[in-house]
C-alpha cells in the first residue's frame, strides 16, 4: 500500500512539546500540584511509545508466527497483572482465572475476526494480528477491572443480601446472580453509551489512524465496526468467565466472604481443584452447579 501520510521529523515532533507550556503554566499558577506529575507522565509516555515503536518495528520486520504469538501472551500477562493490581484482588489464585478469561476470549474473537471475516492468508500476520488483538485485550481489561471492582465492592457492602438468597434456598451461583448483574451493568453501561455516539462526538483512534495512513474512509469504517463488535463480545466473555470462575476464591466453603488480603494470600495449591473443576463444568454445560458439595453454602 502506498503511504502518502506526511512525514513528521524528530525536530518538529520535539517542537510539539511546546504545547505543554500552556497547561503547565495554568497548573503552576493555580498551585494544583500537577506540574511534576504531568512532566513525569509525558516523559513516560514518550519513552514507552518510543520503545513500542522500536519493538513493533522489529516484530513487524521479523513477522515470525511464534514471536507474534509470544507478544500476544506478553500482552495478556501485562493486562492480567494490571487487572489484579487495580482491583486489589492479587495473588496467583486470581492470575489464573483472569488470564484464562482473556485468553479464551481472544482466541474466540480472533478466530472470528481474522480467520472468518478477514480470511487472512497468514492468521498471525503481525500487521493485523498484533494491533487488533492488542486493542481487544486493552478494552477487555478496562471492562474487567470495573466489573471485578463492582462485584467485590457490592458483595462486601451487600453481603447480607447474598446470605438472604442463600437462606431462602439459592445455590451459590443463584445467590450471586444479582451481583454479577450489577457488575455487568456498571462495566458495560459506559461502553454502550460510547458505542451510541461514536462518529458523532468522537472519531475512534484506529479509524483516524487508518485514514491518516492512507486508507479510504469506507474501508476504515468497516474495520472500525468490526473492531467495535469484536471488543464488545470479547469484553463480555472476559468479564463473564472471570466473574464465574473467581467466586470460589472469594467465598469460603462455609459461606464467609474473604477479605482482599486473605484472597491475595491464597495460592494455586490451596485453590480447591474440585471447586475450580465444578465451576468449569457448570460453565461448559451451562447448568447450575448441583449440590454435590455438602459443605458449600
Amino acid at each position: 500500500m502506498l503511504l502518502n501520510t506526511y512525514h513528521i521529523s524528530w525536530l518538529s515532533l520535539s517542537l510539539a512539546y511546546i504545547l505543554l507550556a500552556f497547561p503547565l503554566y495554568i497548573f503552576w499558577k493555580y498551585k494544583t500540584g500537577l506540574v511534576k506529575e504531568t512532566l513525569i507522565s509525558f516523559a513516560r509516555m514518550t519513552l514507552q511509545l518510543a520503545l513500542v515503536g522500536l519493538y513493533l518495528g522489529l516484530i513487524f520486520n521479523l513477522n515470525n508466527v511464534w514471536i507474534n504469538i509470544g507478544w500476544v501472551f506478553i500482552m495478556i500477562g501485562v493486562a492480567t497483572i494490571t487487572t489484579t493490581q487495580r482491583s486489589g484482588l492479587k495473588g496467583r489464585a486470581f492470575f489464573v482465572p483472569v488470564s484464562l478469561a482473556l485468553l479464551v476470549s481472544i482466541v474466540l474473537i480472533d478466530t472470528f475476526f481474522l480467520g472468518a471475516i478477514l480470511q487472512l492468508e497468514n492468521f498471525f500476520e503481525a500487521r493485523y494480528f498484533i494491533p487488533i488483538t492488542g486493542m481487544i485485550i486493552g478494552n477487555c481489561m478496562e471492562r474487567n477491572i470495573i466489573a471485578l471492582n463492582t462485584f467485590y465492592d457490592t458483595l462486601t457492602k451487600e453481603y447480607e443480601v447474598y446470605q438472604y438468597y442463600i437462606a431462602n434456598g439459592a445455590s451459590r451461583q443463584e445467590a450471586l446472580r444479582p451481583f454479577i448483574s450489577e457488575a455487568i451493568q456498571k462495566s458495560f453501561n459506559p461502553l454502550i453509551a460510547n458505542t451510541a455516539v461514536i462518529g458523532l462526538i468522537a472519531l475512534p483512534g484506529m479509524m483516524t489512524g487508518q485514514i491518516l495512513g492512507g486508507s479510504a474512509p469506507g474501508l476504515a469504517i468497516k474495520y472500525q465496526i468490526l473492531l467495535m463488535l469484536g471488543i464488545f463480545t470479547a469484553s463480555l466473555s472476559t468479564v463473564y468467565i472471570t466473574l464465574r470462575s473467581v467466586t470460589p476464591h472469594l467465598i469460603s466453603a462455609s459461606g464467609i466472604l474473604l477479605s482482599k488480603q486473605q484472597v491475595s494470600n491464597k495460592t494455586v495449591k490451596q485453590l480447591s481443584v474440585y471447586e475450580l473443576h465444578q465451576e468449569l463444568v457448570s460453565l461448559s454445560v451451562g447448568k447450575q452447579k448441583v449440590n454435590t458439595d455438602p459443605s458449600f453454602s
Partner: peptide, 14 residues
C-alpha cells in the same frame, strides 16, 4: 436452610 426463610433488615437489589 431447606426448612427456613429469612428476611434481613436491609435489602438491596439491582
Amino acid at each position: 436452610r431447606e426448612f427456613t426463610s429469612w428476611v434481613p433488615q436491609d435489602i438491596w437489589t439491582p
